[in-house]
Design a protein around this nucleic acid. Structure first.
Lengths: 347, 347
DNA sequence: CTGAAAGCGCTTACAG
DNA sequence: CTGAAAGCGCTTACAG
């Protein structure tokens, strides 16, 4: 209590500035806003007073008076993952450049859905002018009540709600790209780690796209089902066995992490990559992967972030005239030393 | 303009709630705060109205009235780096648990110092009650003016200012730990990649600590100076040459990234790890590194985050009674398959 | 247990 | 070019 009073006393207010500059509050406000004309001499006095007092305008009060916070919120899923880290960084920089003040809130991961709702409330309570949602769990039904109040752009996640503008990745195309790259290297017997949709929707979409494209092109596909969330070394061992048995000459993974797990196990057990088996992952984000030289499909995070910020800018300008769409971007394949021609058949 | 008016109209206000519940604004406020006693029947009507209107209290207005935002700001350096990502995630979760509402701002990296000041302003403008600073560039002189207004906890960076509470890593100890682990494995001829302080202060501190501990213990140290910010493959090649010449049997790196670069190059050129050379990195954050099995020193990010949040809580409770300190935490060594005994001398 | 009223720090017509 | 005043959406003594 006394803290507040004290710091309230200590923090200079616009009135303080006005008084020490010998003008009215309105004038200080005008100088700060830079909109109306102010005599140069008074402006100087005001600026001087601001500097002298170390005055920082109270945005809370500004927002209240303007009925607009000038803030754009970002609901971010899991900062520990490089892909979200990069997305965060890109959104931040592009928003800055577009003069949108981005503030980020991360739902604490325990009890996902409740946490996301709470994080959403926090942002809405701050009366953000716009909202980026880069989170998996939150459903359309939680978003819907606020769509009329604040423009929402869903970023990097497949968007189903048609009141929400969506900018995300074309995971089907990515799956096709990975498949095509393996085919181009001459592989016809290929394992695909197929993540269950219950584990991860995007992973599952990628895997199914790989599988169907390979089949379309006449390759023999060996599905290895992944039904656990972790990386599960059994899958890698199973695939290594298939290589030794001569069943497959290549393997595609729906994420770089899973591919890396296989690489590690393959190396330990003396399997040569790409001599005996070619490997491709998907994501292309982690610099560690790049160093290792893992072939992959690079997700277009930068393009998605860029488009999302542009859309948000447009939405903030003229809300109603922009038709809501769900856009998808595709990345590019990254060939690498984990990819080679299939080994010659021994028999 | 008209947007604002419209959404102002659309967003229900406390008055709307009061009106539809047939009570006064004060009563609604009391129900929300949960402090004062309210008759159960009125409380029900109010709750009902809140739900019906989809009312979200305007925190800006609350802050203004309470002179306290209930917010704690986090100034975060670079979300692309896993270490910062993990720190962000930990701070977020622990803050949640401590009932501190964390909001994060990332200075856009172009023109570091100016961007950080701007991000700082944004947070101060929001009148955060406390501030975590996890950023490299911002100097004490920029922080100083606000220390009397808001408690600041510097997290994960060496803190020099004695008005700022510091919670960070004991990088000297980490260097010693890495050195000791190599010695324990029997190595006596060891290369150390020594990053220049101008490139990265923490890296340089780590490297110098490794060097001095090794020398203290009588090992022959071969410094390889790194003066560029990137990972620089030349260093890795130089070290590989030293291995081939039989000059060294082990190498220590001040970061996992740099160690990984060497590992990749070593493998490509047919050097056996740890058969011919043992390798240790530092950080221990990236899951990719764990999979590869890189020996390292794990930085205690969780412990630092935990302590930082505790300190912030205390500071917010009783500002003046908590003496300002600079605490340092140490992590633990992670032995791994990149470490083995030195090879027998051929001659 | 509840309401009328003042006040938090700003902005912005409205006068001058 | 400048100031007095109303109002943004809340909270909180103060009465009752």
């Amino acid at each position: 209590m006394s803290e507040n009073l004290r710091s309230a006393t200590l923090t200079p207010t616009m009135d303080d500035v006005a008084r020490t500059a010998g003008v009215s509050r309105a004038t200080v406000s005008r100088v700060l806003a830079g909109t109306a004309r102010v005599a140069e001499s008074t402006e100087d006095r005001v600026l001087q007073a601001i500097k002298q007092l170390g005055y920082v305008p109270n945005r809370m009060a500004q927002s209240l008076a303007t009925r607009s916070s000038g803030l754009v919120g970002l609901l971010l899923r899991d900062p520990r993952k490089s892909a979200y880290g990069l997305l965060h960084s890109e959104l931040q920089q592009l928003s800055d450049r577009a003069n949108l003040q981005l503030i980020t809130v991360v739902p604490s991961s325990t009890e996902a859905s409740a946490a996301e709702k709470q994080a959403l409330q926090r942002l809405l309570g701050l009366r953000v002018d716009g909202l980026f949602v880069a989170t998996g769990v939150i459903g359309p039904e939680d978003l819907a009540p606020f769509l009329s109040v604040v423009p929402v752009v869903s970023v990097g996640r497949p968007e189903a709600h048609d009141g929400v503008y969506g900018v995300s990745y074309d995971e089907v195309a990515h799956g096709h790209m990975a498949a095509d790259l393996l085919l181009r290297h001459g592989h016809r017997d290929i394992a695909v780690l197929a993540t269950a949709a219950s584990v991860s929707v995007p992973e599952s979409v990628r895997a199914e796209a790989i599988v169907s494209r390979l089949r379309e092109r006449g390759a023999a596909v060996h599905r290895v089902e992944a039904t656990t969330f972790g990386i599960g070394a059994e899958h890698s061992h199973r695939i290594a066995d298939m290589v030794r048995e001569g069943t497959i000459t290549a393997v595609a993974f729906p994420t770089d992490d899973r591919a890396l797990d296989f690489l590690t196990i393959a190396r330990k057990s003396g399997l040569r990559v790409p001599g005996e088996v070619s490997v491709i992952g998907m994501d292309g984000i982690s610099p560690a992967m790049a160093m290792i030289g893992l072939a992959t499909v690079r997700i277009p995070i930068e393009a998605v972030a860029d488009r999302a910020v542009t859309v948000m800018g447009d939405l903030l300008e003229h809300r109603d005239s922009l038709p809501i769409r769900h856009e998808k971007f595709r990345g590019h394949t990254v060939d690498g030393p984990t990819l080679g021609p299939p080994p010659r058949r021994k028999s």
